[in-house]
């Protein structure tokens, strides 16, 4: 149902300890955001996409398609930041006038916008590494280890299990409705979608009651415990992660990235 979830279970890094993958993605992301220099961002993008495509074996075309998802938000926001709107003319490096308003780009804003574009893509590549190599169940086991409240994780687990069931139900209802012209007109589609949602809600309500009854019958109190598969901690991987992060930090400092994002962003 979700391609990302599918790859998270069937990639070549599946046997690696989830904490290692989690730490690698998160630390790299922090480095990328904290230094916020162009060179660091480019290095992170290249490193992460190389590992995701080459080591984990995610198809390149799918990876590119995934990268294009946040592009609409990114392009709109970056362009919004780059352009300045004012009534007076200003020292624009490029600008024009519409009606009485002056639109233009200042050197500083352009700098911020371009830097931001690459920084965001860098962070996104870290997120994709995590979500394409580590399944939700593994992520939850890592969260449990870093002491996120048990109730929160348990709710996460319940949500994860039921997303697929509800998704399928919603899809079936939608198909049935479309086959009966449920989405043929604007008015119809509102009515159909309203019915779909309220039905889905009632279905989930009853399902939750049934689940509780079933669990009670099996002596359920307070929490659901499952045995986690054991993963070997690989010293080689830990060393690699430390070395790569140190190299990234050294490179950022050396090229004048500056801690906390230089002057502007």
């Amino acid at each position: 149902m979700f391609k990302i979830d599918q790859y998270a279970y069937a990639n070549r890094l599946g046997a690696v300890h989830p904490a290692e993958k989690f730490a690698f993605a998160v630390v790299t992301m922090i480095v990328c955001i904290v230094f916020s220099s162009m060179l660091t961002s480019l290095a992170v993008i290249l490193l992460m996409s190389f590992i995701t495509v080459r080591r984990a074996g995610i198809p390149g075309r799918f990876y590119l398609k995934l990268l294009s998802i946040p592009l609409s938000f990114l392009v709109v926001s970056v362009v919004t930041i780059a352009f300045t709107v004012s009534r007076e003319t200003y020292q624009f490096i490029y600008g024009f006038t519409v009606w009485n308003l002056h639109l233009g780009i200042t050197a500083r804003d352009l700098d911020v916008a371009v830097n931001l574009f690459f920084k965001s893509l860098g962070a996104v590549s870290c997120l994709y590494f995590l979500s394409l190599t580590t399944s939700m169940v593994e992520i939850m086991s890592v969260l449990k280890r870093i002491r996120v409240p048990l109730l929160f994780i348990e709710l996460m687990g319940l949500v994860y299990r039921f997303v697929f069931v509800l998704m399928e139900t919603a899809g079936q209802i939608h198909t049935a409705q479309s086959a009966r012209w449920g989405y043929a007109s604007f008015r119809n589609s509102y009515r159909s979608l309203g019915q779909l949602i309220s039905n889905l809600f009632i279905k989930s309500y009853h399902r939750s009651q049934m689940l509780f009854t079933a669990l009670l019958a099996r002596c359920y109190t307070d929490e659901l415990n499952v045995i986690e598969p054991g993963y070997p901690v690989s010293a080689k991987n830990v060393l690699m992660i430390v070395l790569v992060e140190l190299a990234l930090v050294a490179m950022s400092l050396f090229t004048g990235g500056g801690l906390f994002g230089g002057i502007y962003s």
Binding site: L151, E154, L155, G157, L158, V159, Y160, R161, F162, V163, V165, L166, M167, A170, Y183, F186, S189, Y190, L193, L196, I197, L200, F201, S204, Y205, R207, S208, Q209, L211, F212, L215
Partner: peptide, 28 residues
């Protein structure tokens, strides 16, 4: 709330899944 009505935990889990599915639906 769970102390008084433990069956609400399942309800909340399903509510979360419901909210997620809702956000994936297409709205004309």
């Amino acid at each position: 709330t769970l102390r008084d009505r433990p069956n609400l935990k399942m309800m909340l889990g399903l509510a979360g899944a419901f909210a997620f599915v809702l956000s994936a639906l297409k709205l004309p």
